[in-house]
């Protein structure tokens, strides 16, 4: 167990993967919403609600998994609200997304006061612990990086092939993509466009909730106001930069967060300046990608357009 360069690489990789996890899960959730043809800017707000719900759930049930369940339910309700406004009422998706962000920010802070009062002492709650995979976690470097993580990390990376398979190899996945590309055609083929969009929106939001829960009961062990701090926007960036493919999104999340990890590392060593620029990295990369890809971004053709029958 020397403090050699290999050891550092293993640790850096491990922390990159850990940091990328909330982004990855939220982005995969957003992917489902986008594939249904909905443009969802409100990832940040949805995650924020979930961070609080997870802490509260863990506090009251005494189990971090209870917290996760609460986070999933809370985020799902936000998804339902978004779906109702944009699908049933056909409201402007961008504006509703912004409202969800403001609501998430306000409601999480307010409910925090309601539940835990103004006290500054942090309630101690059950949180996620590392779950080393027997055997594999002993492999040098790779073991620390990949096989000594929290359960949610494994789930997040397992979701990549699962969602990939779902989208491209199953009937509901094909139907979902058809709804996002050409809802009119999907309708003539007997697919209930509204229902498909509702389900995708709620399930997608639930995944964003898992991402939020991991922030407050995994990466950290408490709730603080605005603690998502831009990760919702990074998730949006990851979906675009990953070209609407689960594996692409996985690499995008890891590249984005590598900048963050590097920034923290450099700050430790007193090299402060690149910190802010490395944090900018996800956004700059996405703008550059948008500039180079232009219209061939692979975004679903009907994204952002409300659908009405007849």
């Amino acid at each position: 167990m020397g403090v050699g360069p290999l050891h550092i690489i293993g640790n850096v990789l491990a922390s990159d993967i850990r940091m990328a996890t909330p982004i990855l899960i939220a982005a995969l959730g957003l992917l489902l919403v986008n594939e249904a043809g909905l443009l969802h800017i409100g990832v940040e707000g949805t995650m924020l609600i979930a961070t609080l719900a997870a802490v509260a759930g863990s506090y009251y049930t005494g189990s971090v998994w209870g917290g996760l369940l609460c986070a999933i339910i809370a985020a799902g309700l936000m998804g339902l609200l978004f779906a109702f406004l944009t699908i049933t009422l056909r409201a402007n998706q961008t504006v509703v997304g912004v409202a969800i962000n403001i609501l998430g920010s306000g409601l999480s802070a307010a409910m925090n006061r309601v539940l835990f009062g103004v006290s500054t002492t942090i309630a101690s709650i059950d949180t996620f612990k590392n779950l080393p995979i027997p055997g594999l976690s002993k492999i040098p470097v790779l073991g620390t990086a990949f096989f000594n993580q929290m359960p949610i990390v494994y789930i997040a990376f397992l979701l990549v092939p699962v969602i990939s398979y779902f989208l491209f190899k199953t009937q509901p996945g094909l139907n979902l993509r058809a709804v996002g590309e050409n809802p009119g055609a999907a309708d003539t083929l007997g697919i209930n466009v509204y229902r498909t969009r509702y389900i995708a929106c709620v399930v997608g939001s639930m995944l964003m909730g898992v991402g939020g829960a991991f922030l407050s009961t995994g990466l950290l062990t408490f709730f603080s106001e605005e603690m998502v701090s831009g990760r919702g926007y990074i998730a949006i960036a990851a979906v675009i930069f990953g070209r609407y493919k689960p594996t692409g999104i996985m690499f995008a999340s890891m590249i984005f967060m590598a900048g963050n990890v590097l920034a923290n590392l450099l700050q430790v060593y007193g090299v402060g300046i690149p910190y802010y620029f490395l944090n900018m990295l996800p956004y700059i990369l996405t703008v550059v990608a948008l500039a180079m890809l232009g219209k061939s971004t692979m975004a679903p053709a009907a994204q952002g357009k409300p659908y009405r029958r007849g």
Binding site: A178, E181, A185, T188
Partner: peptide, 20 residues
């Protein structure tokens, strides 16, 4: 009523109930 980004087969399979 077709999805241009998909193949002929995929287009035929959209909304199918008996394709597995």
């Amino acid at each position: 009523m077709l999805v241009p980004t998909m193949t002929v087969t995929e287009n035929c399979l959209i909304g199918a109930t008996d394709a597995g």
